[in-house]
């Protein structure tokens, strides 16, 4: 359970995002996430879940407002500071975003890039300790036997678990997962969600995930946030969440939240 006295590790203040073509992605989002939470964001496609997620590590630039990571503003950070903040925020993508032509090991080691000077990583001079870290991460996701294979020889589920291993070695404070299971079958989806759960419970990482599946959301989340048309319309701890609430988030006809 989250303790009220803990400082938020993610602090989103009045964030709005308007795209170049004038459509509004997010409007006035306020959200605090405490260390150790497993937050799942639900909502229809186009509700702004991905946009919100990508605003947290500034893969998207927000139009207004601030995002603080562990008290430091990522929306204002530049250059080296921005990269250091991003190092604390791992991300897992729907399409895995691995380099398919490279080996599993190289993809996992990429998680350590933020810790190396450019020349050293460019020459592939990773420290032995980091290689051990990569092996350990791959062992966690049960893929140690694939360490030297090219990623394009792996199945989709295995690729996503390589991405999880990359997040492990990054040693972040926060793990963002943007529809991590959308391209996977139900069984592998559970494997990947279990990986995230163990990161959350055993290593104490804060996890924020977008999920399409209500069943997975209820199974893994400690807190559920509902998004509709770029606004937060629902925010409850898991023990207060009812099936009716979830249905309302998707159906859009509801009395919950702060609709205007």
């Amino acid at each position: 359970m989250t303790k009220p006295e803990l400082k938020p590790v993610i602090d989103v203040q009045h964030v709005s995002k308007i795209y170049d073509n004038g459509t509004s992605g997010l409007s006035d989002i306020n959200l605090q996430v405490k260390p150790g939470e497993f937050v799942v964001i639900v909502g229809l496609s186009g509700a702004g879940k991905s946009t919100l997620m990508r605003s947290l590590n500034r893969l998207h630039q927000v139009t207004e407002g601030h995002v603080l990571i562990d008290g430091r503003s990522i929306t204002e950070a530049k250059g080296r500071n921005l990269r250091q903040l991003r190092r604390d925020v791992a991300m897992i993508f729907q399409n895995f975003n691995l380099v398919k032509q490279s080996t599993v090991l190289r993809n996992v080691l990429a998680g350590r890039l933020g810790y190396y000077p450019t020349w050293q990583s460019s020459l592939g001079l990773f420290k032995e300790a980091d290689k051990q870290r990569a092996y350990k991460a791959l062992e966690r996701v049960n893929l140690l036997d694939k360490v030297y294979q090219r990623v394009d020889q792996l199945s989709g589920g295995q690729q996503q678990r390589v991405a999880v291993a990359r997040a492990f070695v990054q040693d972040p404070k926060i793990v963002l997962a943007d529809e991590p299971t959308a391209s996977l079958d139900p069984k592998t989806a559970h494997l990947v969600m279990n990986d995230l759960k163990s990161m959350n419970q055993e290593l104490g990482k804060t996890v924020v995930a977008n999920l399409h599946s209500v069943a997975l959301a209820k199974e893994y989340a400690t807190r559920i946030i509902g998004l509709r048309a770029g606004r937060i319309v629902y925010d409850e701890s898991i023990q207060n969440v009812t099936d009716a609430d979830l249905a309302d988030i998707y159906n859009g006809d509801s009395s919950v939240g702060e609709r205007q």
Binding site: L144, K146, Y148
Partner: peptide, 11 residues
């Protein structure tokens, strides 16, 4: 922890 054997070509 058991690493798979690397072939010479890979190594």
């Amino acid at each position: 922890m058991k690493l798979p054997k690397q072939t010479i070509v890979q190594r």
